[in-house]
Design a protein around this nucleic acid. Structure first.
Lengths: 349, 349
DNA sequence: CGGCGAGATGTTTACGTCAACATGGACGGC
DNA sequence: GCCGTCCATGTTGACGTAAACATCTCGCCG
């Protein structure tokens, strides 16, 4: 009646013995498997003495519940998937961290699905690897979209929340309030007395970049100021540097709002190389507030966004959707904050 | 004979209907479940016509294999766990990305286990959540160790790879060649003619930081130079700045090796504030080569490490261990590269 | 032209867990 | 003292898959 050869070597070279199961614990404790199950799940209707005996047996044989069997049994996995592109990016890694923390705090685990390029094909591929498969819900964290009119299309039936500003999904959406942040940045510069504000935008495929650009433009227009031509970067310091070279050569430029801190860094370098003083000649505002920004030269005035809050809200929304099955509603918008450091000042007299 | 009520609403409010199973496909295609299984697993001994019929049926009913059932059946999960602390950190997020890419390329998926603090308790907790549970192996990516003599102790029986330099584990280990990198940095400065090199070290709980510090010291000693007192930071730009304040005030300091780029950034700021010219008065070398470093002011000379290679090797080693069951041997050491930019020059005359 | 092997397909069963139902003893009310 | 109840515990079966074994149909060779 041995369920399996007791000698591990009998079955071949690489066969790892399976861990002890409830049946093993049950035998050890002299109870039925069901009682072990009850103890493992903290049910109340078990005699204290029995519970103790079972717990001791578990410890003795080194029992760990088998999550696959559990998932099969209950049809739930207690885990959520995250589809992410550009993971090492400052914002994404921060957000992912927040998501992960929130998820494990709820006793769920998280399955990571990186995609190299955010195309329809890659994303749906990643999604279907997750779908109905190993996951109770998924969070999509993709910075840039390949957004022809055919928006990324996902099979329904699995709870999804998207971290993005676009309301074009029929999924719940969570994001930083991009427009609010860009407006703060622009107004700050205007308030200092600058005639107008130049802009280094992020890539147009990014909703976040577009939101910031539009809000910068709207703020300028609302204040009755001229809207200078936009320089477009790709978030990288390098692209900020290249845009900065042109800006630095133009004496009319006294204030620049860069769509993220990295591009602001590149801009700062270009300004230094052109011997344009910051903030004496040119004021610079970034967006993100990376840890480094406080130590740029000069320390960067920027818009702080709370990736932590974004991640937390996304998990909250997803878990609620999983719980209730309700495709919950209102997009969540996380506010930003202006942090003033040394890269902004009134324009030169 | 209905296996389940056909009306989804019958069983309650939030009950998500389970996806179609092999049995459903089998019925649809008019074959046995086993044949569906064979098709799903790409076995060859299926008639072409039958295979087509089954594939069509799968498409029609929207079949997706159930990974829980598979895992239960085969005792394998085709997924690996990553225990990680300080995920948003530059190096860690890069490494994680590389790991994730390598893992999915092998058709595995990855389960993320963040720990907030790298204590024995937290790590073993994370480990046991993973252990025998949902994962075929685990990669441990923890920057700082709480290293009293009781090294972090893991139950055996699950393949593990540690990303770290310390050989004190009885697990395979992969890491950047810290010593080599620090030696390159130090020698570069010496070669430029500096009398000696000062050092801003990372936190002593970090093996990487210790390795770099020791190697810096050894290089100096080997060259017969004085070893200046070490300043200790915690990797953050802020700590680099604070250490830099002291260094900037000391006219004897002409060359500094900072244990990472972020601290180098803080140092740069302190030097600017003290009006010490870089590289005219003081040369600075960092470690990591973050994307930003090329755009610091001045652009930073630094040691590039390949997080990508580290991640790839770690996955390789782990997968091999899973395959063969062999607790594979040799630690892997990934070489570094000196990248010279504008923050280093010969000492002032 | 009978038999034999190869390849396609079907049937049974076990993986570990837990809901649902079954059992059996203790206790209280009348 | 009889019966109804409640509680601890046991038994059965199903979740979806795939290995092992069984069967059935050919085609080919002697």
């Amino acid at each position: 009646m041995p369920r399996q050869s007791a000698t591990p070597s009998a079955s071949g070279h690489a066969a790892r013995r399976r861990g002890p199961s409830m049946a093993d614990v049950a035998r050890e404790a002299g109870v039925s498997g069901q009682t072990v199950s009850r103890v493992a799940n903290g049910k109340t209707n078990v005699d204290d003495a029995t519970r103790e005996r079972v717990l001791a047996a578990m410890r003795r044989v080194g029992y760990r519940p088998n999550s696959a069997a559990r998932a099969l049994r209950n049809g739930k996995f207690r885990s959520i998937g995250v589809i992410i592109s550009a993971l090492p990016t400052f914002g994404n890694s921060r957000t992912l961290d927040a998501i992960a923390a929130a998820v494990v705090a709820q006793g769920f685990s998280i399955i990571l699905m990186p995609v190299t390029r955010p195309t329809q094909g890659e994303v749906t591929g990643a999604f279907s690897k997750l779908n109905e498969q190993a996951v109770d819900g998924v969070i999509i964290l993709i910075e840039q979209h390949q957004l022809d009119q055919s928006e990324i299309e996902l099979p329904h039936g699995l709870p999804v929340v998207v971290i993005d500003s676009s309301a074009r999904y029929d999924y719940p959406v969570v994001d930083t309030d991009q427009a609010d942040g860009a407006a703060r940045a622009t107004r700050h510069l205007l308030d200092l007395g600058h005639e107008t504000v130049w802009h280094i935008a992020g890539p147009p495929q990014s909703y976040a970049a577009e939101r910031r650009r539009k809000s910068w433009q709207a703020t300028l227009t609302a204040a009755g100021r001229a809207v200078p031509p936009v320089r477009t970067g790709d978030w990288s310091p390098e692209s900020g540097y290249r845009a900065g070279l042109a800006l630095a050569a133009d004496p009319a430029v006294t204030a620049v709002f860069a769509a993220n801190d990295q591009m602001a860094l590149g801009l700062l370098r270009a300004l230094h190389e052109a011997a344009r003083n910051v903030p004496g000649d040119v004021s610079v505002v970034g967006f993100d507030d990376m840890e480094e920004s406080a130590h740029f030269w000069p320390p960067l005035t920027t818009i702080r966004q709370s990736f932590e809050a974004v991640g937390r809200h996304a998990v909250e929304a997803l878990l609620a959707e999983i719980e209730t099955g309700a495709e919950a509603g209102e997009p969540v918008s996380v506010p930003t904050e202006l942090v003033v450091r040394s890269s902004t000042a009134p324009p030169p007299a």
